[in-house]
Amino acid sequence: MASSRDRQRKLARAKLDRQMARRAATLRRKRRIQAGLGGALALVLIGLGAFWALGGFDKEPENTASDVCVWTPQEPGVNVNAKDVGLPSTTDVPTFGTRDMNLTTNEGNVTVSLDLASAPCGNASLAYLAGKNFYDNTKCHEITTEGALHCGDPSGTNLGGPTYTFANENVPDSAPTPSPSASPAPGTPATYPAGTVALYPNPPGANGSQFLIFFKDFTPSAEPAYPIVGKVSAGMDVVDKISKIGTVDNGSGAQVKPKTDVTIQTLTVGAVQGDQADSTPSANPSAAPSATATPTGAPSGTPTNAS
């Protein structure tokens, strides 16, 4: 008959065998789990590698200026001449190609090719306001001494516009030191050649709805102040005809009001055309319409507010 010590030894051996079996089973489970995780990780890495190889991590080109255009609302009641039409969108702003801005006036039709690459925000504002019929049945209230038709203020006061402003863009580089006659040196391109269309910021640096259509070359004697948004592509003869209309006192002592009304009956902005390579002009004078500089008297180049 087995002794008590033998029985204890057998029990201890059996217990050890059970412990070893449990440990082996646990180790096998861990290995299976690790193998499964390793396989899953490998599949993930293979998938990410394929995604990268196909350009999945490449940044998509952006065709909007939502991070560039900032529309600054005016405080209610500050400008009684402002017209509330809301704010343009900050998304889906075209930053390439051109758009046609079509003006139907009582003197004839004018088409402006807007340069979206150089002035996306200015042109986004023009398109937005045109969509609100902001310019329809408004008068161009000045024929400026600088040689431009001044439009876009429904109030006709030089102070009107929408209830928002936005910063300058595409303002030409500083003008060269003028000659004693205040005219550009021979052979020097004008800062604003005839046919240039530019915004009229009022106050300087804060743009709204007002714009200028230059009918003769202009180079300011001071820092250029007008952001270029495009150029006349058709109807320059109409602009020239308007330029010959005489002017009278606008009520503030300035002889700039047209003797006969120049009315924008409708203003529309068409669809985007072309790509960025087609976009002209730019703030570089050589990219704007070219013409021989014509003495303008003594232009100031600084917006004049009506009191």
Rank of each mutant, 00 (worst) to 15 (best):
F51V: 13
S300N: 11
T294E: 15
Q210I: 10
V269G: 02
L116W: 04
L129R: 04
S179M: 13
G195I: 09
S179V: 10
A35E: 12
N202Q: 14
D240M: 09
A25V: 05
L16I: 06
L126K: 00
D6Q: 12
E60G: 07
E146V: 09
S113F: 00
L103A: 04
G195K: 07
P61K: 08
A65R: 02
K139C: 07
E107P: 01
S221H: 02
S300E: 13
Y164H: 00
L41C: 08
D84F: 05
A254L: 13
G270A: 01
L103S: 03
T196C: 06
A291N: 14
D100P: 01
A2C: 04
A25F: 04
V262C: 01
G161H: 12
N137L: 05
G270D: 04
S221Y: 00
A206F: 10
D275T: 10
S282T: 15
T144G: 01
A119D: 11
V171K: 01
F96S: 14
Q74W: 04
P120G: 07
P201Y: 01
V256W: 10
T90C: 11
T90D: 15
K257Q: 04
K259E: 15
E107Q: 15
G253C: 03
R7T: 13
G55W: 03
N123C: 14
T98S: 07
I213H: 02
P76M: 07
S118R: 08
V85E: 11
T64C: 01
E62L: 08
T91A: 14
K244S: 12
D249P: 09
A40L: 14
S279N: 13
G297F: 05
G131I: 11
F218P: 02
P193R: 00
F57Y: 12
P220Q: 06
A117H: 11
N207F: 00
L103D: 10
A50C: 13
A185I: 02
A298M: 09
K216S: 14
P285E: 00
T304C: 00
G270C: 02
T280G: 04
Y192M: 02
V70G: 07
P184W: 06
T90N: 14
S3H: 08
T263G: 07
L87W: 06
F211V: 08
A40G: 05
G97K: 07
F215L: 07
V70N: 13
E62K: 08
S66L: 08
S179R: 13
T157C: 00
D275E: 05
I33R: 14
T296F: 05
G274C: 04
G36H: 11
G230M: 09
A198T: 12
T219G: 00
T247E: 13
Q210L: 09
G108S: 11
F215Y: 15
T98C: 05
A148M: 09
N102D: 14
V269W: 04
Q255S: 04
T219W: 01
S307A: 15
C151V: 03
N168P: 05
V262A: 00
S66H: 13
A127D: 15
T304E: 07
A50K: 08
D275L: 02
N202A: 11
G86S: 01
A53P: 10
I143S: 03
L37Q: 10
N137C: 02
E75R: 12
P201L: 00
D84C: 05
V171C: 03
A206T: 12
N137V: 08
G147E: 06
Q8N: 13
N168H: 08
P203L: 03
